[in-house]
Amino acid sequence: MTDAGNGHVLFLNWRDTKHPEGGGSEVYLERVAAELAGRGHRVTLLCQAHGTAPAEETTPQGVRIVRRGGRHTVYLFAALLYLSGAVGLGALAGRRLGRPDLIVDVCNGMPFLSRLYARRPVIALVHHVHREQWPVVFGPRVARVGWWIESRLAVRVYRRCRYITVSESTRGELAELGVDPERITVVHNGTPEVVGPAVARTPHPSLVVLGRLVPHKRVELALRATALLATELPTLELVVAGQGWWDEPLRRLAADLGIEDRVRFAGFVTEAHKHELLCGAWLLLLPSLKEGWGLTIVEAGARSTPSVAFRSAGGVADAMSNGETGVLVDDEFEFFRAIRSLVLDGRRRTEMGTAAAAYSQRFTWAMTGANFARVVDEHLPAAQPLADQRVP
C-alpha cells in the first residue's frame, strides 16, 4: 500500500497549458498537479502532443508531462500506455514510470473512460457539463453521440468513483445526470497572483474579453454590444485577448458591424500584458455559453475590475457575487443594458471593483491545492481498497 503524500498520481487530460488552445481548465490542472508534487507525490500528466512541444519534459515544480497522440487519439494512447505491460507506462512512454497509484481522469466533454481498463482508483475531474456546447461545436449527429457519451456512458462508467468539480453549479448539473451528490467534492479554482505594478484605468471607456476564440465563447455578443454602445460613446474600445480558430469569423463580424476602429484583437497575451489589460479595462465581459468556474472573472476582480456574464453559463455564479462584484444577465439585451449601465455609472463601477478585489481573496491556489490533495490522499490505495472502485 502507498502512504498518503507519497503516491504516483497520473492525470489524463487532452491538453496542457502550453497547448495553443489551453485554457482555464489546464491552468487549474497545472496548479493542483504542482501542489501535489510539492507535497511529495510523484505526478505525471499525459496529454496530446502539439507543435514543437517535447514528447516528455518535467516542469520546475516536478510534474512529468508525457505528450502522445492528437486531439482524438490521445484517448487511445492513454489506454495503450497504461496497458503496455507490467511497467504500465514504460514501454511506450519512454523510460520506466511504473503504474500509477491513482488516476485523475479529466472529463472535458469526452472522458478517457480509464475506469474500464485501469485497476487503480480513479477520480473523475469535471469542470462543467457540455450539454449546450456539443451542438455549437459539432453537427447534430456528432453532438447527439457526444452528449450520450458524456451524460449516459460516463456516468455509468464512473458510477463508483469520486468526482471533483470546481463549482456548485456543476455539482448540481452532475447530480441531475444521476451522479450521487455525496460523491462530488467541490474544489474551487484559485486566483492567480497579481504581479506587476498597478496600471491606471484607460481614460476612455474600455471593455475586455479574455479567452480562447471558439464559437461557444460567444465573443460575437461583445462585438454587437460594442457596436450599439459606440453610437453613444464614440471613444469606446473593446479588446479581444486570446487566440483560436474562430478568429477570422470574429474579425469579419467586426468589419461588418463597422467597428474595426473600436475593436483591437490582441491575440495571445503574456501574463504581464494580461495584467495591464485587466487593470486598465473598465469592465470584463464574459459572454461564454458555459463555464465551469469563470477564472477570468476572478482574475479581473483581483484588479478591481467588475464583470458582466450570463447566469446560464453555470460556474460564473460562483466566481462572482451578483450585483456586488459584477452582474449576471439572462439574455443578450440584458447583457447590453448591464454593460451600458456600468460604463455610464462610474461610482457603481468603482464600488463593484472594490468588492470584486475583496471577493477574489477568498480563492487561493494554496487552498485549492490543499483541498484537492486531501481528496487524493483519501483515495490512494492505502486509504481505500482497490476493489471498492472496480467496475464489475
Rank of each mutant, 00 (worst) to 15 (best):
D3A: 12
G7R: 01
L12G: 08
L12R: 11
R15T: 00
G24R: 01
V27M: 15
Y28H: 10
R31C: 06
V32K: 04
A33R: 02
A37C: 10
G38E: 02
H41N: 14
H50S: 06
T52Q: 15
P54K: 09
T58V: 15
T59G: 07
G62Q: 07
G62I: 04
R64P: 10
R68T: 00
H72N: 11
F77C: 02
L83G: 03
L89Q: 01
R96E: 01
L97H: 08
G98C: 05
P100A: 07
V106T: 03
C107I: 02
C107S: 05
F112K: 02
P135G: 10
R141C: 06
R152K: 09
R152P: 02
V157M: 14
V166I: 10
T170R: 11
V179P: 04
V186Q: 10
T191H: 05
P192S: 07
A200T: 03
P203S: 13
S206W: 03
V208K: 03
H216W: 15
H216Q: 13
E220G: 03
A230T: 04
A241E: 01
D256T: 05
D256Q: 15
G258T: 01
A266I: 03
A266D: 10
E271T: 02
A281G: 11
A281Q: 07
G292P: 03
R303M: 08
T305R: 09
V316N: 08
I339Y: 08
D345A: 12
R347I: 01
M352E: 04
A356C: 13
A357P: 03
A358V: 09
R362A: 07
A366W: 12
M367V: 00
G369V: 02
P385K: 08
